[in-house]
Design a binder for these strands. Structure first.
Lengths: 134, 134
DNA sequence: TATATATTTGCAACAATGATGCAAATAGAG
DNA sequence: CTCTATTTGCATCATTGTTGCAAATATATA
């Protein structure tokens, strides 16, 4: 899957900013912050353009946002058919702060007290990643 | 447990702001945003004081912060012995935006790919709460 | 290919949140 | 009651999310 096809599939216009964001995330293979994406892109875009590109891509389910509680915000590609639609799991490394999207990783949402209806869930697991363990 | 005892236990000075935050949260029985806490308190505190009081209380494990991805930040009392120390689960209602801390609610963190070491985890379940279901 | 139109960009501007330095006020120990 | 360390309030700043608007651009179609 390449940026152009992704945009076409979602009926989004091809713009340099959107293509840049997508190719940065596709090649990264992990979640990236706005800054990290920016540093991987040639063009110099306005912050608002960046922000709106992310927003549009998220609204069309091309990307999803991962908020780690200390103000760390990362974005990752939503791989259709691979990323579980409603029950996401992410891993944050406490050492290198890498956020990985645990694609295809499913977990059972435990039963809640009666009356509660579960729709989506986000599981954020914090620990030490493979690279930092060595 | 009352605000004064909580502060004493954690060797924190009794200040009007801290006591106010704690009594607001103790009586609420759910997570509250900064604004919600503020509206429940008599005194008119500077935003910085508020912010620093929350920070101090979080650092001493009296409170914990729940970040819902749409920029919604809530705070809840950490009930020692009741709130699971490292594996928190919270429920966010998509209708009324109430965030409840699922105290004493434990879940099994699924096995990760080898090499990953899990330390903490936050499970954020989104759905419809009891009140909004009726 | 040229053109029309709807979308996107860049800029200015603003709100909310997180953060720090510093002098004045205050809590708690003695 | 007094002293000292902590906390408060204020000013100030950075970052992130957001909107309005005119100019630029992508895409459909003539």
């Amino acid at each position: 899957m390449n940026p152009i096809d992704i945009l076409k599939t979602h009926q989004l216009k091809r713009t340099v900013c959107r293509e840049g964001i997508l190719s940065a995330l596709l090649s990264a293979n992990k979640a990236l912050s706005e800054e990290e994406v920016k540093s991987k892109i040639d063009g110099n875009f306005d912050r608002t353009t960046f922000y709106r590109s992310f927003k549009t891509l998220i609204e069309h389910n091309v990307l999803h946002k991962i908020v780690v509680d200390e103000g760390l915000v990362k974005y990752a590609i939503t791989i259709v058919g691979k990323t579980p639609e409603h029950h996401h799991a992410h891993f944050v490394c406490k050492k290198c702060h890498t956020v990985s999207c645990l694609d295809a990783f499913t977990f059972k949402v435990p039963n809640l007290p009666s009356g509660y209806q579960t729709e989506d869930s986000d599981l954020l697991i914090k620990g030490v990643c493979k690279m930092c363990t060595i």
